[in-house]
């Protein structure tokens, strides 16, 4: 029923469509991309042509190949970070909310602190201290700063569920805490969890782009964020290489929109009040 509602939801399908498109791009990059994204042996600053559909960069790389390969790291960072964030949210929100007591007090205070702490400035200074640049520190930094909101939502949902009859029945029948959490609470929040996952993915993709644009990632890897870093550094727009600057941003916005659509659609399916009439 829920799945059917999801499958017939136009927004969900649009979001899933975009996501699948980028996933295919990332998966088939070696087959689709005309050149290696790091090959710098082409004439620099070419406009679009048959050989280079989207032209070349100031360093003589093929823009189209970079765009295709760039989807890989961007997607990986988005999905891995979202998974990690969801994991933390699950533990802090659901466990804290269910167990209650001082553990919950501490966890929700922690949540509130991280919620108010501005994410990007924190990311910037953490990333500035990390001496090894690359994907892993970026994932780490985004995860640390991005989990609080969802954890708070999950916690309040858990509190609502905890007092419901079927959970109390399970407690009375002597089921263990973990069993109750895993078999009764988590399945009932699947929708919110999934919606939060896509919300986190959107946050991760945008944050990654921001950090890499500042040169806080590894600028030698090819992602949409580092493409923008180089495009800005080499003044792509002033050189008339608009596609080099515009397209990575469009891709980020589209991928972000896909995550946003999925987040929204899942919310809509789970929460019937929001459903279209």
């Amino acid at each position: 029923m829920t799945l059917r509602a999801f499958l017939t939801n136009r927004r969900a399908m649009a979001g899933a469509g975009i996501l699948v498109f980028f996933a295919l791009l990332a998966g088939l990059a070696p087959l689709i991309a005309p050149y290696s994204p790091t090959n710098i042996n082409f004439p620099p600053m070419l406009g679009p042509s048959a050989a280079h559909l989207l032209g070349t960069t100031a360093n003589g790389q093929d823009v189209l190949s970079q765009l295709i390969w760039g989807s890989r790291d961007t997607l990986i960072v988005g999905l891995v970070t979202a998974t990690l964030i969801s994991g933390i949210q699950l533990i802090v929100g659901i466990f804290g909310g269910y167990v209650g007591g001082w553990i919950d007090e501490v966890l929700s205070m922690l949540t509130n602190i991280f919620l108010v702490m501005p994410g990007l400035p924190l990311m910037i200074i953490v990333a500035a201290y990390v001496t090894v640049k690359g994907t892993v520190p970026i994932i780490f930094v985004i995860t640390v700063t991005g989990w609080a909101w969802g954890a708070r939502v999950l916690r309040s949902q858990t509190l609502t569920l905890r007092s419901q009859a079927f959970v109390e029945a399970a407690q009375l029948s002597g089921e263990s805490r973990w069993r109750i959490v895993l078999t009764h609470i988590v399945p009932n929040m699947a929708g919110i969890l999934v919606a939060n996952f896509f919300g986190a993915a959107l946050y991760a993709v945008l944050s990654e782009a921001g950090l890499e644009f500042l040169g806080l990632g590894n600028v030698n890897t090819v992602t949409w964020g580092t493409m923008l870093y180089w495009a800005e550094n080499d003044e792509a727009l002033l050189m008339g290489l608009w596609q080099w600057m515009v397209l990575p941003g469009v891709c980020i916005a589209l991928l972000g929109t896909a995550f946003g659509l999925l987040n929204f659609a899942v919310d809509e399916v789970v929460n019937p009040r929001l459903r279209r009439t």
Binding site: L202, A209, L228, L237, P248, G249, A253, G256, T257
Partner: peptide
């Protein structure tokens, strides 16, 4: 959703 998903700095550029 699209506006919300645009990188600020890119839009600024």
């Amino acid at each position: 959703l699209l506006l919300n998903s645009m990188p600020y700095f890119w839009f600024a550029l």
